[in-house]
Design a protein around this nucleic acid. Structure first.
Length: 573
RNA sequence: CGGGAAGUGGCGCAGUUUGGCAGCGCGCAGCGUUCGGGACGCUGAGGCCGCGGGUUCAAAUCCCGCCUUCCCGACCA
């Protein structure tokens, strides 16, 4: 490709809207252009990268036996109503009214894929099957940001597996897990698979693939000692529970304190301390009330200095929901007699370790101190209920955990029967002639987000710096002063032709520009290998081969130039 | 949805305080001189100053309303 023909013009300064490095560079080097907030066009260079990333993912899906399909982006509203997700995911759904009825733009494709394949997977003989697509998704993000990082329209590679039983599902899951590791490995970015929370999609075991990055919006806990890795939303910590519990008889009585204007933990601690009972936030019991889908109430107990991690399946009560329960005094809730009021009590393990707490008095304006586990309140179940912090003990080995800022680039779910149990058509006939629901899995890679992550990771002060696996071109030939020197012109042209002839994806900067501009543009663009042809080195019978990633330049004789380039390319791959 | 900042030629910005010819740098077009790391001279094109209303002899500038964009937070398969 001749750069004079390429739809490309670099920007010397980045548009003020761009904050993240990847966003700035992708705009400056003419890979993408913004159409609206969180909506981007891919220019020729951007599309080349997108195609390469997609192709790697495609090959790895294919390698484990998944079959590519293409599902619609436009979904009849009814299929979303059929699983209740028109309601559940209403925040992100973009609605489209047409002469033919109400539609939504697909943010994900569980319903659509079932509609697409269930006729063809109607017998146990048809299973297992994995299909995938690489397609545009639409989500009405409340806050798109960081260029391709979080957008309202983005491309995802999403796979769906269909199995006859749980063991089959696990086996399909392992295949995709492997495919993901291979795909991210080929691209060459750092990543780790971590245990994850299943969130709104629901289901059983799942993993997130995280890539550490400064612009990451997620954190995961990592144990430096063992292989424990978990998303902050799923991470647990170890709590040591003393073997000998305190003797109840020797403990102080529970006493009430009048703390009228002290609903939160911090001000309650202050108020109670002022009343002559010194206290820290850690000695306070934070009591939150949540409900499950069936409307059952749960009281969740964590130490006052910790943030709660709400178990999946539960949601905290909203303000107006509190009013439905006269025994709940918001800001003054305590665990005493929770069971009598129909609540199950779930406490963090650390509650069992400490046993004595100050907490809400279950009366407006009152707190208590000296509430003792097993005497003044009871716990139905202990769990790890707090959001882990840097330094918390690893649940496996007890070493202090580290928190890593990262970007979610992929997610794999074992859905089990979560969707197939809701949709009668999501079933097959077993060998006994009965109908059974599919055991499903679903898997997603944010392809366009990946581009942002790659750009973020592979860039320096000069610009982008793509790994060969996804670079828009492998080599760029840069003649310096070609308009003044027929020799430079001819040499560059013949190297270019020769590389093209060998099937190397090559670009030549045939624009009539001064050398500084040309070299700066080419660096900004981030092509892995630059072949610089100038009169100075030509006088010695040489050209220069520059490795963009580390800036090293190798002078090489004319006759060896092409073979050196192809050899270096081979090494880089 | 809450808090903050900003919208002036393709990009970056000044001008708004104190109303009075719409400017600068980059980019773009032409000519010439340059030429191994974003060169220079001359000439030129390109603007509904986000949109709508109001005040005024006069509005980029003051007032009211709206829209858009970005940042922080809430949210997030």
């Amino acid at each position: 490709m001749q750069m004079s023909q390429l739809v490309f013009k670099s920007l010397r300064e980045s548009p003020s809207e761009a904050e993240a490095k990847s966003h700035q560079l992708l705009l400056r080097a003419a890979y993408i252009r913004r159409l609206a907030s969180g909506v981007y066009s891919y220019l020729p260079l951007g599309l080349k990268v997108l195609s390469k990333v997609s192709q790697i993912i495609r090959e790895e899906f294919d390698r484990v036996g998944a079959q590519e399909v293409l599902l619609p982006a436009l979904h009849p509203l009814e299929i979303w109503e059929s699983t209740g997700r028109a309601e559940k995911m209403s925040d992100v759904l973009i609605h489209v009214e047409t002469k033919g009825g109400s539609f939504v733009l697909g943010p994900t494709h569980e319903e659509a894929v079932i509609e697409a394949v269930h006729q063809d997977l109607s017998s146990y003989r048809d299973l297992p099957a994995i299909v995938y697509q690489i397609q545009t998704k639409f989500r009405d993000e409340p806050r798109s940001r960081y260029g391709l990082m979080r957008t309202r329209e983005f491309i995802m590679a999403d796979g769906y597996s269909f199995d006859a039983d749980q063991e089959g599902m696990r086996s399909s899951y392992r295949k995709i897990y492997e495919a993901y590791n291979n795909a991210f490995g080929r691209i060459g970015i750092p990543f780790e698979a971590v245990e994850a929370d299943s969130g709104a999609i629901g289901g059983d075991v799942n993993h997130e693939f995280m890539s550490p990055a400064d612009i990451g919006e997620d954190h995961y806990a990592k144990c430096p000692q063992c292989d424990y890795r978990a998303n902050i939303e799923a991470a647990r910590r170890r709590v040591a529970i003393p073997a000998i519990l305190k003797n109840l008889d020797e403990l102080p009585e529970m006493s009430f304190h009048y703390t009228p204007d002290a609903p939160g933990v911090d001000i309650a601690v202050e108020a109670i301390t002022k009343l002559g009972v010194p206290l820290t936030a850690a000695e306070m019991l934070k009591c939150l009330v949540a409900k499950d889908a069936a409307g059952n109430l749960f009281m969740l107990l964590v130490p006052g200095d910790r943030e709660i991690r709400v178990p999946s399946g539960l949601t905290l009560l909203l303000d107006d929901e509190f009013e439905q329960f006269p025994f709940l005094y918001k800001g003054f809730i305590g665990p005493m007699s929770a069971q009598t009021n129909g609540m199950s009590v779930i406490a963090d393990y650390s509650v069992a370790a400490k046993m004595i707490f100050a907490t809400g008095g279950n009366k407006a304006g009152y707190h208590v101190s000296g509430a003792v586990l097993g005497r003044d309140f009871d716990v139905d179940e202990f769990q790890s209920l707090v959001v882990v912090r840097e330094g918390d003990p690893c649940p496996n080995c007890g070493e202090p955990l580290e928190l890593v800022r990262s970007v979610e680039i992929g997610h794999t779910f074992q859905l089990g029967l979560a969707y197939s149990s809701l949709l009668p058509q999501a079933s097959f006939t077993g060998s006994d002639g009965e109908q059974y629901p599919y055991f499903m899995g679903c898997y997603g890679i944010g392809v366009t987000r990946l581009i942002a992550v790659i750009a973020e990771h592979f860039s320096d002060e000069k610009g982008l710096c793509w790994p060969v696996s996804v670079a828009p071109y492998e080599v760029v030939v840069v003649p310096l002063g070609a308009s003044r020197s027929a020799e430079v012109q001819d040499t560059a042209q013949s190297i270019y032709n020769e590389l093209l002839g060998l099937g190397v994806e090559t670009l030549i900067d045939d624009r009539k520009l001064s050398p500084g501009v040309s070299l700066a543009d080419v660096d900004l663009m981030g092509i892995p290998l630059e072949v610089i042809v100038g009169s100075k080195s030509l006088a010695e019978g040489c050209v220069e081969v520059k490795l963009r990633s580390d800036g090293t330049v190798l002078k090489v004789g004319l006759v060896d130039a092409v073979s050196l380039v192809t050899e270096r390319l081979r090494k880089l791959k």
